[in-house]
Design a binder for these strands. Structure first.
Lengths: 195, 195
DNA sequence: GTTATTTTTGAATCATTATTCATTTATATT
DNA sequence: AATATAAATGAATAATGATTCAAAAATAAC
């Protein structure tokens, strides 16, 4: 007999994140992922049925790791809605602080999966966005948020803005430090731009 | 002799927008673009040297059409900064109102070109974003905008938010009517979410 | 209506890579 | 240390689709 040594499934994911981030999913080569993972090209297929499933796996991890924390946050009684929204933003950013490459892959390649694939992560992804929406609804009900705002539009606007900044940070940490980004996003969230 | 009939270069662009929007640049087939354009596959290459140059051309048109209007807007003396920002938002949305497919291509595929290609549109694109930044700066100087906001972050946050909403509108006009989106974006811009 | 020139065609070429699989290597068990 | 079994290899396969190009079609000029 022979046993598998190390956690190759994980090693492959890490290598894939690196290569997807650098080249984008479509231009990424399986052979390069294998090289970085330190295994043979064909060995990839012992762990994943195809290239797309590797990408899928990445997003499954991202969004499943946010599911519980987001649900818990929503349920808390000791925070007001604005605090909850701030925490939700932090949850999201925290996923990526340790891994700019993961942020690049998220921004550039998740959309591809949402078209073709009916992958397992989509449920968790939408649940995360819904949580933001629910918190806003809560804020409007408790009369601390402006009721003239369309909740769906608001949540998506914010998500889009944050997503774009995450992307810029991933490309250039110095120009867009994540703590400054967080702070500004929270500020705009609350106050808009007017003096 | 023989003369070219019709504006095939344009017909190809229109067909390409349709196909890129449906399949994404990487999965789009030149043969399908040709079919929709009503010409032979090989004829594409009489007008464009390769697939990527078609995509490039699309963005050249988009961003060059915004260059002058944006500059003019910036220079106007009869508007305050907030009015200028609102107009800038309108300029941007107006490009896409007639063509949801163009919006899809913008959101999904421009990034690809910004990586590989040093295409002609990039200058105009950045100029457009810079215009937004300049208006905000003007607003801060004239003390009508909050000076605590980081201008670069602000402009990118807004651009990202708008971009994401444009994408949602392109996928589902009914759920995200562009006029409602405009209105909400302008509202958030000014007031933030707090009551 | 013939010729010269340009446009158009679309099947053949060519390059690229994801995926497969016959073979080799490693190690758990005896 | 021999055997059995699973893991790993990487060269060969196979599919795809962008691009080319020799041939055909169209029309302007005469």
């Amino acid at each position: 007999m022979r046993t598998k040594e190390g956690n190759k499934a994980k090693t492959i994911i890490d290598a894939a994140i690196e290569v997807f981030a650098a080249d984008g999913f479509h231009n990424a080569k399986i052979s390069q992922i294998a090289q970085i993972a330190g295994i043979a090209t064909g060995s990839i297929y012992l762990y994943y049925p195809n290239k797309e499933s590797i990408l899928s796996k990445i997003f499954e991890q991202v969004w499943s790791s946010l599911a519980l924390p987001a649900d818990d946050l929503l349920a808390r009684k000791d925070m007001n809605p604005i605090e909850k929204l701030e925490n939700l933003i932090d949850l999201f950013f925290d996923i990526f602080t340790e891994d700019p490459n993961l942020a690049k892959v998220f921004v550039n390649d998740q959309e591809h999966l949402m078209k073709t694939n009916s992958s397992a992560f989509i449920h968790n992804y939408e649940n995360f966005l819904d949580t933001g929406e629910k918190i806003v609804l809560e804020g409007i009900k408790s009369q601390c948020f402006n009721p003239n705002i369309d909740i769906k539009i608001f949540r998506n606007f914010f998500f889009g803005g944050i997503r774009h900044l995450l992307h810029l940070w991933a490309r250039d940490h110095k120009a867009f430090p994540l703590n400054v980004v967080r702070q500004n996003v929270k500020f705009i969230l609350k106050k808009g731009i007017l003096e």
